[in-house]
Nucleic acid binder design. Sequence first.
DNA 1: TCTATGACTCCGG
DNA 2: CCCGGAGCCATAG
Length: 112
Amino acid sequence: MERKTGSSNFFTKVYEVAKRIPFGKVTSYGAIAKHLGAERSARMVGWAMNAAHNIDDVPAHRVVNRNGLLTGKSHFDGTNLMQQLLENEGVEIKNYQIVDLEKYFWNPQDNF
DNA sequence: TCTATGACTCCGG
DNA sequence: CCCGGAGCCATAG
């Protein structure tokens, strides 16, 4: 847990990246993990998102799995809340999956 | 300190 | 094409 002052560095990094996701764009757990230098820790990104659930600054709904599937939808209040949020941002979604993922995909490294 | 778990991903059948 | 298992690694209990 908090070995250092404040939260774990890993979570903080994930939050920082998530906050940078532009409106109407999405990214994947793996992309974030890779950007953090922990490509094999994609699951941890999801874990961080789970913790981020308490932080409104982190748009967790803009983070999907590598297939563009809204895997985290179950963690939101409504069954379709995550999809609603993304559609509201102009992202076309069908059956809880982003239609043109490459079109809406945002690479964290592009912003750095 | 050790065990279980998961909003992932890859690979094989 | 669809389904299942194994690998990974940090956090929580």
